[in-house]
Simulated scan of single mutants.
Amino acid sequence: MWGYFQPNDVVIAADSERRDYAPSGMNHHHFCGRCGCSTWSKTPDWSAMDETGENQTQRIAVNLWLLDDVDVRALPVELLDGRNQW
């Protein structure tokens, strides 16, 4: 489950085992170098397009299952239909 945040609202505390990759130049993904778990990503905020179709806004996607002291099962979930609603 992913939580989406503005970049200024997130502080990432990571150790030296963190790895990352940016395959497209737009998305920058981070994962644990020990277990391979995806931890967070910095991506364009596709919902914030301007009138020209350009996007200057970024967002941070955080893997909520990795947070300490958060009951992920109790969080509200917004289901997305990526096949039919893009």
Rank of each mutant, 00 (worst) to 15 (best):
P23F: 14
C32R: 01
P7E: 01
R18Y: 10
Y4P: 00
M1H: 04
K42V: 13
D71W: 11
L79F: 12
G36M: 09
D9L: 03
M1T: 06
T57H: 14
W46M: 09
V70D: 00
D9W: 05
S38W: 08
C37I: 15
D15F: 03
G33Q: 07
Y21N: 08
T39E: 03
P44W: 08
R18G: 02
E78Y: 11
W86I: 07
V10M: 03
G36D: 03
G33W: 15
D45G: 00
L79H: 13
V11P: 00
A61K: 06
V72N: 01
G3H: 04
T57Q: 10
E51Q: 08
L79Y: 13
S24W: 08
A74Y: 07
F5Q: 01
N27T: 08
V62S: 01
L80M: 12
Q58I: 06
W2F: 12
V10H: 01
L64N: 04
I12Y: 01
R59F: 03
D69N: 15
L64Y: 05
S38Y: 08
P7N: 04
D69R: 15
C32G: 02
A14Q: 08
M26E: 13
L75K: 04
R73E: 15
E78V: 13
V70M: 09
W46A: 11
H28E: 05
E54K: 10
L80Q: 10
S47D: 13
P44Q: 08
L80Y: 05
V11I: 14
H28N: 06
W46C: 02
V70Y: 03
L66I: 14
S47H: 11
D71E: 14
D69A: 15
C37N: 10
V10W: 02
F31T: 04
D9P: 00
H29R: 13
V72Y: 05
P7T: 12
R83L: 15
D50Y: 07
